[in-house]
Design a protein around this nucleic acid. Structure first.
Length: 492
RNA sequence: GGUUCCUUGGCCGAGUGGUUAGGUAGCGGUCUGCAAAACCGCGUACGGCGGUUCGAUUCCGCCAGGGACCUCCA
């Protein structure tokens, strides 16, 4: 099996052959959510993108350490303003909850949504609030090395000094001098030596609940610091993959690079991988823009913009049908199309067990295998992979209809191909409504169909159609075939 | 204003210097008692204007439109 896996590296802006730091092992850190409200469609993009990457690395035989953090402290409403309030703390105030209740509430929802989307849980899911010590240690080291300065109980990262010794802006392609000459002057940042310096430690205002003691002040860590501290703690000073949304490239990931490099003297991440955004009416879907649809709303159809509910697998398939580095535009029409396509794919998979084999094959399964492998190896090109799988769908349906033949060996190969790509790698699963009493239902349907078959034998089309129509009305679809009939419970 | 990306058929969305992406929707056909499903076929898609080339949707330039980042964001 060809395992030359190529991945686009945002840092070098090229597609590179993936070679792990340690043969047979892969380390991956992905920026998780800030848990202060419900997860929306946009959050499904990185979750599914990096789930695909995780699953594919596992498929290739790597022992993968997958770390995805939960930001539960330190994320300010407005980094630039001195008045910036911690997002969690703000929500806690609004909902009259303990900050940790807010965190737990939305973390639970996030986990439920992720499980619904059939994403595999990360191996380690560290929380910022659980790594205050590690972050403080890092601040201390940054201060010792002269890359951080304290003032009025807060500590800031010295971007200018860092830029002199290394270079600030390598990931986002920015130049500090240009940035400074082009930036508008913001009010209320007198504490910092430079507007692009960012907080490592913030002194907590008297009313601030989330606070930890430190030699600088009672306060809390800055947002960017947690990822630097936790990624190196669990993955080492150099690790393979760091993922996240493109919108995190600057400043978040840029600051992470600066912090880690300043402490260690060398870069830590080998492949930076960024997923693109989901748009709605051509605009990025974001909590702060207010144009978002939560995953629960999508699953229930309970949102003014939704004409119907969409199942988790429809959402997953919708996302996988676009390349992860392209924007993906939300619309009901697009989601419905994805749902229909997924249904077609899953029906074909179910058909694999009903196919008859022949002495010879009239379809080239090996060629299909090759194409699928090439697609996924080409920077996780899931849309092309899916296109090839639909070629396989046509083969399956044609074999079922008898216009294409397969040997037992080829059929086994095709079955393995579909199971591997559809279930293991793309992470799709069957959602057919697990009805409560399948035996009772099938017994009743079989009874009705027996009556219908008798009617058909007597060319009593009226009775035949009546039974078919009535079954359809309660959601059971009848399909007549040359040699009998089939029926199935229609999914939503 | 700075940096950067995008513009593909009704919709979503791949891709390529000359050959079918795929899904969905539409149309025609096969099959069927009629359907459904499936299969087969179809519709002159590559924002505009120039250039390079034997040949450009694909490369270059200009123009138009849109997006992302430069605040928090997946």
């Amino acid at each position: 099996m060809d395992s030359s896996f190529y991945l686009y590296n945002s840092l070098t802006r090229t597609t590179e052959l993936f070679t792990p730091l340690v043969p047979g092992k892969a380390g991956m850190y992905v920026c998780g959510p800030t848990v202060y409200s419900n997860a929306h469609l946009g959050h499904a993009r990185p979750a599914i993108t990096f789930d695909l990457l995780y699953r594919y690395l596992l498929h290739l035989g790597y022992q993968v350490r997958y770390v995805r953090n939960i930001t539960d402290v330190g994320h300010l409403e407005d980094e630039a303003e001195e008045t910036g309030e911690d997002k969690i703390a703000k929500k806690a105030r609004l909902e009259q909850l303990e900050p940790m209740e807010v965190v737990q509430k939305y973390m639970n929802t996030f986990h439920r949504n992720m499980a619904d989307l059939n994403t595999l849980p990360p191996g380690i899911e560290p929380r910022a609030s659980g790594h205050i010590i590690e972050q403080q240690v890092m601040i201390r080291r940054l201060m010792e090395k002269g890359y951080a300065y304290g003032i009025n109980g807060s500590v800031y990262f010295d971007v200018v000094k860092y830029d002199r010794d290394f270079r600030y802006g390598i990931l986002s392609g920015r130049n500090l001098e240009e940035m400074m000459s082009n930036s508008r002057q913001l009010e209320g940042q007198q504490e910092k030596r430079n507007p692009y310096d960012f907080a490592l430690w913030k002194k907590a205002a008297p009313e601030h609940i989330m606070r930890w003691p430190s030699e600088w002040s009672e306060g809390f860590p800055g947002w960017h610091l947690e990822c630097s501290a936790m990624s190196t703690k669990y993955l080492g000073e150099v690790f393979d993959i760091h993922g996240g949304g493109m919108d995190l490239q600057f400043p978040h990931h840029e600051c992470e690079i600066a912090q880690s490099t300043a402490v260690l003297g060398h870069p830590t991440v080998r492949y930076w991988v960024h997923n693109n955004m989901i748009t709605i009416n051509g605009q990025k879907m974001a909590r702060s823009l207010g144009n978002f649809i939560t995953l629960d709303e999508l699953f229930s159809g309970n949102h003014p913009l939704l004409t119907q509910a969409y199942s988790p697998m429809t959402i997953r398939f919708f996302i996988l049908q676009a390349h992860y580095r392209s924007t993906l535009d939300f619309s009901n029409e697009a989601l419905q199309a994805a749902g229909k396509g997924l249904e077609k794919l899953m029906k074909a998979v179910a058909l694999l067990d009903k196919l008859k084999t022949s002495g010879s094959s009239s379809a080239d399964i090996s060629a299909l295998e090759q194409k699928c492998s090439e697609a996924i190896n080409d920077d996780l090109n899931s849309p092309v992979l899916i296109a090839h799988l639909f070629d396989g769908v046509r083969i399956i349906n044609s074999v079922y209809d008898g216009s294409v033949t397969l040997t037992a060996e080829d059929l086994e190969k095709l079955r393995k191909l579909f199971y591997t790509y559809v279930f293991d790698i793309l992470g799709l699963k069957n959602e057919s409504s697990g009805t409560a009493q399948p035996e009772l239902i099938s017994g009743l349907v079989e009874l009705a169909m027996q009556i219908r078959t008798n009617a058909r034998n007597n060319k009593d089309w009226g009775t035949s159609d009546f039974i078919r129509n009535e079954l359809a009305r309660i959601g059971i679809v009848v399909k007549d075939r040359k040699d009998g009939f089939e029926w199935e419970i229609k999914g939503d």
